[in-house]
Design a binder for these strands. Sequence first.
RNA 1: GGGGAGUUGCCGGAGCGGUCAAACGGGCCUGACUGUAAAUCAGGUGGCAUCUGCCUACGGAGGUUCGAAUCCUCCACUCCCCA
Length: 416
Amino acid sequence: MSEWIASLRVRGLVQDHTPLPDRPEALGAMYVGIDPTADSLHIGHLAPLQLLYHLAQLGIHPIVVIGGATARVGDPSGRKSERPLLPPEVVQQNAQKIAAQVQRLLPFPFTLLDNYEWIGGLSLLDFLREVGKFITVSYLLSKETVLSRLESGISFTEFSYPLLQAYDFYYLCRHRGCRLQIGGADQWGNITTGIELIRKLTGEEVYGLTCPLLTRADGTKFGKSDSGDNIWLDPTKTSPYKFYQFWFNQSDADIPMLLKVFSWRPLQEIQAILEDQAKTPERRLAQRTLAYEMTARVHGEDIAQSVQRASEVVFGAGDLAELERLPATLLEAIANDMPHYTWAEPNLPVLDILVRIGFLRSKSEGRQLLLQGGLSVNRQRIADERQTLAAIPPLRGRYWLIQRGKKHLAWLSILT
RNA sequence: GGGGAGUUGCCGGAGCGGUCAAACGGGCCUGACUGUAAAUCAGGUGGCAUCUGCCUACGGAGGUUCGAAUCCUCCACUCCCCA
């Protein structure tokens, strides 16, 4: 039974599933829900979308549901505390942005819906009679997401969230022939609630499939930067350069898992890359491949190429002369693709400038870094806090490569 | 409705009138070593400074005191137990 998900298993995309039909065609359509709680997707959203991608290849029609209604309630799944309610207009804006992102991201036909369409007009009375009546409180209480919140507190609003999502599934089942819901592992409780509701209301058997919550080799969650920020798909929230660097910096221990989960390459090809990686890890072929593929998918080939080039130049070049020798247009492009600041008065101490432009959080932090040798401009360590920017010759008359620690690089140019 | 416990820095968690910018752990940052990896070791982790000085901070608002994270009052929120 369900041989067809074997390759998904190999890729590490399967956490849990209900008994599945022998043939994927029996499912008709499937859906994944995304609540617009922010104005952009982040890489945490990608794993379920990978599942969607691979399943779509098997002939199951994909539906993406933006939770314009559910985001106004707040999913308690995987949260330790109550979510603040988002204003309706914010949810609406987010929903639009995320819909546009999804459109750009998925290169295959799919149906895009917003659950506000069918939940928005649902009256409380109808909801209580048509949905609430069929799920018992003890059933909901036994769900992990609810259970774990009983101590810390959960409002009735969030408590009722699983019912709304269950209703989505029911609605899509009836109106769109959708018989499979997929999602992250944290969605298991919500998905099974939907299955339960549909069985009670229609007697029909529907299915659920989740992908694992990705964890690193050290047990921490995958998906945030070291400093704990989300890695967004929106280039104004996470620059393509940073996005590329995020993937590039993944550890050897995690890269096999990541490549299998996120790459669209055939498994065979991935195997070959991983073998190379095992033999000569210092080449970082696996990281480079993944970083490029993901950046290209999210931001486009052109940008992927240019940030890759920027990364190579900035990290690779031994001395400044090499940077100087680059064609002016390339240097400019590189500067533009990386974090970039402008400043007008080079006669101030470097430290002050870096604080004012926001590259350093405070002067104290700057001093600290300086003391430890973690601060440089144009690859020169800043050793004196009174050192002025003007005293350091800029590249091409107007660029400085500023550096905090080993990996935090940015450009500073003089405002003309 | 009644009774009890609690609210400390990014998180966990000490402190119970001065020696507290607040022990300890985690996280994070930087350095060394490396491969923009991992592990390890070292330093740092509120802000400003003319650098042992000032300002802001221990849920909120007041008060007691020479002096409060520490005591009192009120308020808010959370948890537990009884109705």
